[in-house]
Design a protein around this nucleic acid. Structure first.
Lengths: 222, 222
DNA sequence: ACATGTTTGGACCATCGGTCCAAACTGATC
DNA sequence: GATCAGTTTGGACCGATGGTCCAAACATGT
């Protein structure tokens, strides 16, 4: 009576959720977040809107899936790294680099706590914290701290990267930040910090933050 | 020849940037981010679109101004608090509470690094770190760590608050998070953490994160 | 060959942010 | 008090968006 669902391609290169997500990532990487529209997808895949909404619940779903695709590669890679300390560091760095390569992931991570990519990161952190000997409610505290630090940095760096693709623009951006910082208040105190800010390295600063966090965990564990 | 610009109201309750921002905050608080449209503003202020774009550069400008309005109140209040440690704590808590009351601020903070509200927070943190004895490049590291932690938490909690206005929904949300966490992997390790997650208090966890960072900063200062 | 239920493409809708411009208004000037 | 110049304002308009819907096109099991 009923035909059980078997695979039934319609075109030579049949559409699939994977292919759609893949195309979405391509568009996001090439032209940024605001360029990922359902229309851009349809023309890129040379199909119609219905075909896409048949596989994907909507824009949110698509973005979440794309981010998860990128993040999964990172967490899978970082899972096996030696001691928990360096595992957490390499996980963090992996996420940082992934966002550096795909800025849109940064904004996406900060947008929605329940999305797969976020859960993935949470779990990865949770496991390493356990290895580190963190137990009980301290797990949620420490995990939340590190995860939220990562997400916050992700969003900020992503916005920075989006704004300043090349080195010159980046320079101008940091100058603007430092200037805005000083001119708002002539206090001598902020001066030095602003100067410091001017030539700092995002990647280095990010890792320093992770270390601060790890130090804090250990200091409180005693 | 030319008439120098004096104040020249057109209606009894003349429009002004302040009044527009105020109205925007009202809409955001009452109906959430997605409800703040230029059209909603015009009808709320019973005016036309041009009148708004005359005072405000666009949606981004408006959101940044609204967030700054909320954040300024917090930083002003926290500026005078005793020792740097408790000043940083009360600043963080102030931001947390502000976001609890105005969830949209959370998403906004994570969106754009150069916006006034973010600079305000950065400066506030920078000053207290100086008081704490942090100098040189450590300032940018520590400040960035704390600031990005705050922004990340802000966005995550904001998304949570948006999703779960009442207690029942909140309950369901945390359950979903814990369940998603466990079912993805049967590993015994994650179980405990997930259970812990189920009945945690956002505010408490947030403050714990701040303390972790403060511990870390002090541990590394030695 | 035929019937069946699945895939697909594109027309359509409401709505958005933003631009533009002519009318309405104000205060200064003659 | 009439005129004028510059400032504010309201709303028509535009292109584009996300999402819904449905009839045609199709592979498959009978």
């Amino acid at each position: 009576m009923t035909t059980p669902a078997t695979h039934r391609p319609r075109r030579a290169d049949a559409l699939s959720r994977e292919r759609i997500v893949e195309a979405a990532i391509e568009i996001l990487d090439r032209s940024g977040e605001q360029a990922l529209t359902v229309r851009a997808l349809t023309s890129h895949l040379s199909t119609g809107r219905g075909a896409i909404y048949y596989r994907v619940a909507g824009m949110d779903d698509l973005l979440a899936a794309a981010a998860d695709e990128v993040i999964r590669a990172v967490t899978d890679r970082a899972a096996g790294d030696g001691d928990p300390d360096s595992a957490l560091r390499s996980l963090s760095l992996g996420i940082f680099d992934a966002i550096d390569a795909h800025p849109w992931v940064g904004s996406q991570l900060a947008r929605e706590p329940l999305q797969p990519a976020v859960l993935r990161i949470w779990k990865c952190i949770g496991v390493q914290l356990w290895e580190l000997g963190v137990r009980g409610s301290a797990t949620a505290d420490a995990g939340g701290a590190l995860a939220n630090y990562i997400f916050g940095s992700a969003a900020q760096f992503a916005a920075g990267a989006r704004r300043a693709r090349n080195q010159a623009e980046r320079r101008r951006y940091l100058d603007a930040l430092a200037t805005a910082w000083t001119e708002q208040d002539a206090g001598h105190i902020v001066r030095e910090a602003a100067a410091e800010l001017r030539d700092h390295d995002d990647r280095h600063q990010f890792l320093a933050g992770v270390d601060i966090f790890l130090s804090g965990i250990k200091a409180r564990a005693k």
